[in-house]
């Protein structure tokens, strides 16, 4: 990797993480969440923070709930609208730009989109050994609480990492 490349990606990383830098490890569910959000979106996986996807992506997620990553999770239109408005109100403004500019990590544009496919997510997790994603205690990258002991409370601090091998890693740093 040339010095130029390194500088460029360091700069890029600095620019791109700025909007969230102050709170990269804190993503609680905002207090104005409609009750339906936790009830309808926290049953099969944890209720993801709206800050994890952009508004256009959330529209695509909740615009096709009958084709939800292989599941049909359709809900009545009124509830769907409430949840959509909430997600969009607190959506990330960061990733759109990232996707266009972060050529180091080509976007994984599935439909519906995945927050675990965003370059931001990949960057935060580039030190996680590949084998760990498929570990029987983890099963899927979307299973944040498997590794982040306080993910349900919206906290992702490194010292809260739950798996023993991640804790060992932590001490080395």
């Amino acid at each position: 990797m040339s010095i130029l490349r390194v500088t460029r990606s360091a700069l890029l990383a600095a620019v791109l993480t700025t909007p969230l830098a102050a709170s990269a490890d804190k993503m609680p569910i905002p207090a104005d969440a409609p009750a339906a959000f936790r009830a309808e979106c926290g049953d099969c996986h944890m209720a993801f923070s709206p800050a994890l996807l952009t508004a256009p992506d959330w529209r695509r997620v909740v615009g096709q709930l009958d084709q939800h990553y292989g599941d049909n999770v359709r809900i009545d239109e009124k509830t769907r609208g409430e949840i959509e408005a909430f997600l969009i109100r607190h959506a990330s403004t960061r990733n759109e730009r990232t996707w266009r500019r972060d050529r180091a990590a080509p976007p994984h544009r599935s439909d519906p989109p995945r927050l675990t496919g965003t370059p931001w997510f990949r960057r935060e997790h580039r030190e996680v050994p590949a084998s760990l994603w498929r570990d029987t205690r983890v099963v899927s990258a979307s299973n944040c609480p498997a590794c982040h002991g306080r993910a349900e409370e919206g906290s992702f601090r490194k010292r809260e990492l739950a798996l023993p091998e991640l804790q060992r890693r932590k001490e080395h740093h």
Partner: peptide
């Protein structure tokens, strides 16, 4: 148990 796809406990 554990959700077979999402891994949720």
């Amino acid at each position: 148990g554990r959700h077979a796809v999402t891994g949720k406990a």
